[in-house]
Design a protein around this nucleic acid. Structure first.
Lengths: 161, 161
DNA sequence: GAATAGTTGACCAAAATAATCAGGATTAGT
DNA sequence: ACTAATCCTGATTATTTTGGTCAACTATTC
């Protein structure tokens, strides 16, 4: 699991899509405008999201992207997995050419940390983030009030280990 | 919060350090050897860890790095924060020059997702990871080598991740 | 039915940024 | 002085992000 701006842009874009998909296909141009993400980049990201079966596309006028399944069945991890291909930093390549315990430690550590983070990000669904966004009081005029309100999360967060 | 190989290398190295620091300063050359991370890179990472007050350094022969505070007071998030300088992908720069709700949405989303991930990674401490590593059954009898038939499994795992 | 325009789809290449490594300088113990 | 170690700065490599071109598809308009 890698968590970079790429994955975040994808999540942001998906939330934008999640908030509007009821009104029909959403264009990337619109998302680009609203979220200030370059259109080229969005095209690339949504190409992957489409091939991973997370969104569906409709070409032509009135077209755009729609969610391929309900928002509560799309986790943040799904989105990140789709756009950020997995890295392997275990040296042994996860392929068994470790020669002693030490070298395998890296492997184990990564897998363990990966599992933890995946568990968490798999528990947060697009529906949660969209809801959180909609719940937010629209006090844009006052600037940045971060209503740090955790919809689902902190509680089940601490379970690991 | 960004989660890349950089942060992971740092965590791996810190666990190595955590497992040995009782016996005095640990050299980066040793960590480099055991964890197969380039010495140059470790130097850079530990330079930051030191400046963030997470480790202390002792120069000269017999020197190396030690933990600046108890392992249960060093979270994974601390380590990652130290080496991976924070990114800002909010367009408005987090500085309040957003002009309408939409532009702020990105900001809020990021902050929210950040908060969730930080909450989680702040709840996992170095002590936990070191303990987990020590608890692992040292099945050196079986060689702890990844057998060839595990290759398929590992490959699948990689794909899944 | 044909033309038009709005949209995705698939590339490729360039620019910007980040990750990684290499070499030399500095410090301190023997 | 010699050596083991951290420190520092620049070079190299990889990844991210953007920009461009052209083809395919389809709703609307003529």
């Amino acid at each position: 699991m890698r968590l970079t701006t790429k994955g975040r842009f994808a999540v942001t874009a998906m939330i934008d899509l999640g908030m509007r998909h009821q009104r029909g296909p959403v264009t990337l141009a619109g998302i680009s405008d609203r979220q200030r993400i370059s259109l080229s980049y969005l095209e690339q990201l949504f190409g992957r999201l489409r091939r991973q079966g997370i969104v569906d596309s409709v070409r032509g006028p009135g077209g755009g992207y729609t969610l391929a399944r309900p928002m509560n069945q799309i986790s943040v991890a799904d989105i990140i997995r789709a756009v950020d291909e997995p890295i392997d930093a275990t040296q042994c390549g996860g392929l068994g050419n470790c020669h002693d315990d030490r070298e395998c430690m890296t492997h184990d550590l990564w897998m363990s940390l990966n599992a933890r983070i995946y568990d968490y990000l798999d528990s947060v669904h697009l529906a949660d983030l969209v809801q959180q966004q909609l719940d937010k009081p629209a006090d844009a005029s006052t600037g940045h009030k971060h209503e740090t309100r955790r919809v689902v999360g902190s509680a089940e967060l601490k379970v690991a280990l």
